[in-house]
Computed example of a mutant assay.
Amino acid sequence: MNSNTRPLPPASATALAELMAGTLPDPSSVSASALDLADRVRDLVEAVVWTDVDAAVRADAARRIAELTAELGAARRDRAVSLIRHPDGRLEHLTQMGSGRLNPQAPRLVFADVAAGPEPGAEPESVEIHARCTLTAAHGGPPERAHGGIVAVLLDQLLGVAAAAAGAPGLTAGLDVRYRRATPYDAPLELTGRWTGRDGRKSFATGEIRAAGVVTAEATAVFIAERRR
């Protein structure tokens, strides 16, 4: 290998977690201040979308935000990925943009009682999982409606978590989204996802988003399990 060539990183958070086996921190390593910072930045982004303050206030805010950016950037981790292992064995990726609690770009997608899944090497088990989310104007597309891209992100994340909870994690190989009607922002959304089976390394899941009980979007996904070395 050329001395200037860096080795390829693991293809997924699951693979990285395996390399870090025995060294992953637990949830107590995530401070309340870290979570609060991410939430306040989410609020800031929405405020920027809505704001109608004058140019002088915007300029002053931009200066202060630049100072905070420099302050926060003064110390960086070796890698952007931040993983923790819950006591039940469940892996959580804190900085991914689908639902990462430490990533301000991630929507506030909250899962209800997601289990860790079967033991490694055991057969996957069919599961159904539930989540909730309220998008904001920062996720907007058409007037008062969510952008189709963020709807796809929610569904990709939902179905990926369902596959992992079933014991069949993998990388997204295909996501087929059907937009049934507009998905609103500033309204509570209910999400349901289920793992439905596998064929070799391929794993399959389906799910939908509901607003006021009505399906606004649904998807099917195919995930590919990584090859074991």
Score class of each variant (00 low, 15 high):
L37F: 06
Q105N: 12
G200V: 01
R85P: 06
G213C: 11
E208Q: 10
D39C: 05
E226W: 11
A55H: 14
R85C: 07
T183Q: 03
A165H: 06
A74H: 06
S29D: 10
R229A: 13
G197W: 15
Q96A: 12
K202R: 11
V110G: 00
L135S: 06
R228I: 06
Q157P: 04
A66E: 07
N2P: 14
A146G: 04
L44I: 13
A21Y: 00
V57A: 12
E190F: 13
V45L: 11
D60V: 13
I150M: 04
A112I: 12
L171I: 02
R210Y: 14
T95H: 14
A221P: 08
S12R: 01
S3H: 14
I224N: 10
A173M: 02
L154E: 05
T196C: 09
G117C: 03
A152F: 05
R64C: 12
M20Y: 02
A75P: 10
V41T: 14
T216Y: 15
V222H: 01
G140P: 03
E128T: 15
T136E: 01
S203E: 03
E125C: 04
P107N: 04
I224S: 13
E128C: 09
D88W: 10
E144Q: 11
L102K: 05
L44E: 11
V177N: 02
A219M: 01
A34Q: 11
